[in-house]
Amino acid sequence: MTSADDGGREFILEVRDLTRSFGGVQAVAGISFGISPGKITGLIGPNGAGKSTTLNMIAGAIKPTSGTVLLQGAAITGLPSFQIARRGVGRTFQVSSEFPSMTVLENMLTAVQRPRGDALGQALLGRWYWRQSEETLLDRANGLLGRFDMTPMANEPASTLSGGQRRLLEIMRVLMAEPRILLLDEPMAGVNPSLSRRIESHLLELKAQGLSMLIVEHEMAVIERLCDHVIVMAQGAELAKGTMKAIRADQKVLDAYLTG
């Protein structure tokens, strides 16, 4: 079973009537949309619109109060986040979540799903058992470091990185997991403009390689450059959806941004 939109294209990830209430407050009041494969979808809206909550529900960090999340047609609603991650859903966090005591390389190696040496029995066998596989992974990491110009920082503890470098690390790290779809929670937050541009070009490269993405952002300009399809949220519900051009012309959206 696959999920599809009106146009008959299949969605790689679909959200149906997703709701989340905290106490008496409805943070997300029933939202539905789909992420098309190989495209970058934007989820925008003023602060407090429920964008991050929606992303967190997709990623499994928060349990939805009701609604469904489908990954290539299969329901993943309410699964624990590690299981959703294992099915190929990668995500970054609004606040950089690197592992501070580990080096950049170690951070990246940790992202690999179930490498040799990760299970207790395998670890006890000793280095000779997982050494080869580790070296293959290191090659992959090396490649990513090169692409993101982070090679000099390979053996630096993540806690010594600058804010921008941490953002890059988080992206490199999640890419090590080779996700099918990537959820980015405000990737440009607190990032200076030149680095922001760099990240944008990296994301476009990834798109060219076929990675599907959902970006939560509240800056229109970034969304304009990156996204093929945009959903605008306000007060927990969908306000408008379509291409950026259509959104820009939508009066409801302009009102929301002026008042929200």
């Binding site: 990623a59 960090a61 624990p80 986040s81 590690f82 991650a85 294992r86 990668g90 995500r91 966090f93 979540s97 690197e98 592992f99 501070p100 005591s101 580990m102 170690e106 190696l109 940790t110 992202a111 690999v112 799903q113 179930r114 490498p115 040799r116 040496g117 990760d118 299970a119 207790l120 395998q122 670890a123 006890l124 066998l125 000793g126 280095r127 997982w130 580790e134 790290r173 999640v174 997991a177």
Partner: peptide, 29 residues
């Protein structure tokens, strides 16, 4: 020594450092 030096050891430290990030990377915390 074998546990802590292995990928399992890394996963343990990841859980220690930032468990929500570890879960987001597929670790069964």
């Amino acid at each position: 020594h074998r546990i802590t030096g292995s990928p399992l050891g890394r996963s343990l430290r990841a859980v220690r450092d930032a468990e929500h990030a570890a879960a987001a990377l597929g670790k069964n915390v």
